[in-house]
Amino acid sequence: MKTLLNLIWFVFGGFALALGYFLAGIVCCLLVVTIPWGIASFRIGAYALWPFGRTIVDRHEHVSVPAELGNIIWLLVAGIWIAIAHVATAIAMAATIVGIPLAIANLKLIPVSLFPLGKRIVRTDRLMPGYSR
């Protein structure tokens, strides 16, 4: 079922969404100072390409003050606009019964698009029991 949902997602928005994140990652990496956001953008793009069967978890051991400051800067510069775009796309996807799971997947991208630093993407079948998301 995950594969079918991922294929439908890929065709109806996942590819374009991932392409946008990859392009943003390239631009951020070219600007050297913004490389951490570029790497985070590549990570989000890979998740946006194939989201079903994976989830986002916090890196509690790796979150630092610079990462938190970077998240605040990202939120103000790009995060809010990306989150609004995800909400608008989710509303459009939810207009059909078939699109509801896709809309939910789009809404799952909002937290990581708001605060991308200090997150990682893991397969859901590799989560340990009792591990908080």
Rank of each mutant, 00 (worst) to 15 (best):
L109D: 06
G130P: 07
I39Q: 02
A90L: 03
S41E: 03
L102K: 00
R120G: 05
V63R: 02
I110L: 08
H62T: 05
P101G: 04
V63F: 01
F10H: 15
L76F: 14
N106F: 01
M93N: 09
T34I: 05
A83K: 09
E68A: 04
P111F: 07
V65C: 02
L114C: 12
G79K: 11
V63M: 06
L4M: 05
C29R: 04
G38M: 10
L17H: 10
T96C: 07
T34L: 10
H62V: 02
A88K: 02
I91P: 02
G13C: 12
I73K: 02
P66F: 07
V112N: 02
N6M: 07
P66S: 10
A46I: 10
L31I: 15
K119V: 01
L76M: 14
I82A: 06
L31Q: 13
A88C: 06
G130E: 12
A88Y: 01
P36E: 12
G53H: 08
F22T: 13
L117H: 04
Y21H: 15
G53Y: 06
L107V: 13
I104R: 00
G45L: 13
A85R: 05
M93E: 14
H60C: 02
L69H: 00
A24F: 12
A18N: 11
V122G: 04
C29P: 01
V11D: 15
T124C: 13
W81V: 00
L19P: 00
P66C: 08
G45Y: 13
V122N: 07
R59E: 06
A46P: 01
G99Y: 13
L23G: 14
F15M: 09
V63Q: 03
Y131H: 08
L69C: 03
A46M: 11
F115G: 02
I35M: 03
N106R: 12
K108C: 09
G70P: 02
L49D: 13
T34E: 08
G70M: 05
A105H: 00
L127T: 11
V57K: 04
I84C: 14
V87R: 07
G53V: 08
L76W: 11
L5A: 05
A95Y: 13
I121V: 15
A105D: 01
A83P: 06
P116G: 00
I26N: 08
S113I: 11
A48G: 14
L7F: 14
L4A: 10
A90Y: 04
E61D: 07
S132C: 10
G45M: 14
A83S: 13
A16D: 10
V32F: 15
Y131V: 08
P66D: 10
G14N: 14
A92G: 09
R59C: 03
L19G: 09
W81E: 00
R59W: 00
M93Y: 12
I73Y: 04
I91G: 04
A16C: 05
V57G: 03
I80L: 07
I110V: 15
I110H: 09
G38D: 11
R120L: 10
A48V: 09
K108M: 08
I110Y: 07
N6I: 06
A85K: 06
F12H: 10
V57A: 04
G45H: 13
